[in-house]
Amino acid sequence: MVAGIETRFFEGPPHQKSPHYSLTDFDSGLFRTVGEILAVSLAQGGHAPTFFSQWAYSYLCNGQINPTQLDKNTVADSQLRLLIDQVESSTEQSLQGLTDEILNCGFTGAISVQHKEPIVRAITLHAVLRLQPMLEQLKEGLQLYGLHLLIKQYPEICQPLFVLGGDVTHFLSEKGTSKHQVELDLVNFIQDLLYESEADENGPRSITPARFLQWITGQGHVPLLPSEKKDFAVVVKFNHNCEADFGNHSICYPVVSSCAKTIVLPVKHMKSYSQFRMVLLEAFHLGQEFNNV
């Protein structure tokens, strides 16, 4: 049910989605229904909707949008993302051909290549601000069982129910480097694997988010008390040169330290999602004791 709601009513990159812009669905009250279904799912121990973007969840908490926290990556609508790409790659002549689309996004300045940055900014704000009615209706639905009140009172505690990876610290290489992109891919692989595993969370050998957390940190839940939660984080590091540690080899596995709440990923052996999944699952299933796999 939750997966169907995500596909039907939300759009954007995995785990960073925003409501789909649809005045038809809004007029029919469907986003209120979506909120009610999500509230029932959580109240009955069902799947958590961990596909919300950070800004959308923040709006559910406080009803405000902070423009300083928004950038072009916040835009989930495929047509507006395409418009941003067209603006950024445009020439003076081709930009004039986008005049109508740009004006429809609320930009009132001069349309020229010198103003590409404010044009993109206007498109970004337009993409986000027009979703407020859908989010407001979603909040109404989340009032079922008092869920929205809990979200407002305890936003940090409730965040893992809506935003995946809120308590993970990544030690990434410098932006713009090839290492940085590879490391971002691995972080996304972790999120994809945990999201995928929710469909088989009752399997005896499945790697659920709770079991994954237990493996890395020694406890199967995020602390609830703010005093404990503020110091809790899973640390993800990356080993780009495992040959230096093990010499020539065909396979090696992540190194987990539950005391330090740290996992070190062997980048060389996890270049694709299928490789990542195979290596991580083998390490998870074979490395539950205090020894080397």
Rank of each mutant, 00 (worst) to 15 (best):
P49D: 00
D71V: 13
Q153A: 12
E282A: 13
A48L: 07
S112Y: 02
Q288N: 04
R81Y: 01
M278Q: 08
D192S: 14
G35C: 08
L193I: 10
D245H: 12
S227K: 13
H249I: 10
L82P: 01
Q143W: 08
K268G: 02
L186R: 04
S258V: 05
S258I: 05
K229E: 03
E282T: 06
Q275P: 01
D231V: 13
C242Q: 07
R121Q: 12
G218V: 07
D231F: 15
A122T: 01
K237P: 00
Y21E: 01
L135T: 03
M278I: 03
L83K: 03
G4K: 08
I157T: 08
P226L: 14
L144H: 04
N202M: 13
V182E: 07
C252P: 00
R277K: 12
T99C: 14
I190Y: 01
H115A: 14
V34A: 11
P226Q: 09
F284P: 00
V87A: 06
I123K: 10
D71M: 11
A283L: 04
G45P: 01
D77N: 14
F246E: 07
N62V: 08
V279S: 02
A3E: 04
F276Q: 00
E101T: 08
H249Q: 09
H221V: 06
R121V: 05
V264D: 08
G29Y: 00
E92D: 09
K17R: 14
F284V: 02
Y145A: 10
E11T: 15
P204T: 06
A122Q: 02
V182G: 05
F276R: 00
I84A: 01
F26N: 10
G218I: 07
S258A: 15
H170P: 00
Q214D: 09
S22G: 05
W215S: 05
Q64I: 11
T91F: 11
F189M: 05
E183S: 09
Y57W: 05
P204H: 08
L23R: 15
E140N: 11
L186P: 01
A127H: 02
L280R: 00
I37W: 03
D25A: 15
H170A: 15
N188F: 08
P67K: 14
Q86N: 06
E136P: 04
P67F: 12
Q159M: 15
I251M: 14
Y59T: 02
L150S: 06
T68P: 03
S58N: 11
H285A: 15
L98Q: 04
L131K: 13
R121M: 09
L281Y: 11
I151Q: 06
P13V: 06
L172G: 04
S22P: 01
E140W: 07
F284C: 05
T99Q: 15
